[in-house]
Design a protein around this nucleic acid. Structure first.
Lengths: 156, 156
DNA sequence: ACGTGTATATCAATCAATTGATATACTATC
DNA sequence: GATAGTATATCAATTGATTGATATACACGT
């Protein structure tokens, strides 16, 4: 019975399924490092944007500032990141030695996973999928911003 | 600063972003019907598989049985679905008149949204995206099942 | 200099989903 | 027919994230 054939809402459902499966796979691959997929993404973002603020981190990782603050607190308590005062109220996040070491190990796991996916789907397909996902996100966010919470025909 | 250009973990991040954006868009489009995107998916699944059990519903919608039970309880309290005893412990779910009426209205909203997406990305692209998402899910789930929580090289 | 506006961080309460555990109904096996 | 196994539902506790509200730090226009 598993896979639905009906049309309506299919894309949304498959999006949810794929995201869940990817999260589970990543969490699983990282569990023995004591990292969650979310934490890895945070480390990755800090590594790419050193001295980033919590608020910006939240935006880049698609969670609320509060949720990010909780994650950051844990990573800081674990000694993987450090924070120092920056401009305004900003607390700039940086990877510590330990954080970088763990991130390097975790990163190679993720890359292995991505290679595995690339082999299964084909590298071109993955790139295409990635691009389509971004286009979809853009198009949905634009439609919301433009109409401020009144998209598509509400009159039926 | 917004869009990350780094490679590692990109697919996962874009998956999360797209799923979040789609969920928000759907929730927004359905808010005045008092329906969440999750509830719509549930109604859709019941409509397609009448007399379905809660456990099966949970599997099809990619949530735990407990989470599904909570959702079902709300839908039942709202009079959108009804349940009757079936084989075993199964409680068969059906749409009520009211449930079908609301589902029809909600469904046309979703279809409008999907048309909007199809126009933005191209119908072929959407079909392709949908297929790729399913392939990705399959490949990730298979890799987990096969190795029972020891996928990819853990030795680094 | 001063008020307005914006960005950041963080406290509090709430909500939704998860993990873990338990009871019930049926199926299959010995 | 008793026993083991499977599937369903549901209770309880926990986690993770959200919405809402508040305080601080800076930029800007007047």
């Amino acid at each position: 019975m598993a896979p639905l054939d009906d049309e309506t809402g299919r894309l949304f459902l498959h999006l949810k399924a794929a995201q869940g499966a990817a999260r589970n796979a990543l969490d699983d691959a990282l569990s023995d490092l004591g990292l969650t997929s979310m934490q890895l993404i945070i480390l990755r973002t800090i590594e790419y944007y050193p001295a980033i603020s919590g608020a910006q981190l939240a935006r880049d990782c698609f969670v609320t500032p509060q949720a990010m603050a909780a994650n950051i607190a844990k990573l800081e308590a674990a000694g993987l990141i450090a924070r120092n005062k920056g401009q305004g109220r900003i607390l700039e996040a940086h990877l510590t030695e330990k954080g970088r070491a763990i991130f390097d190990r975790a990163g190679s796991r993720v890359q292995s996973a991505e290679r595995y996916i690339a082999e299964a789907l084909g590298a071109g397909t993955v790139a295409e999928l990635d691009r389509n996902l971004r286009d979809l996100t853009d198009c949905l966010q634009k439609s919301l911003v433009v109409t401020t919470s009144r998209t598509w025909d509400t009159d039926n």
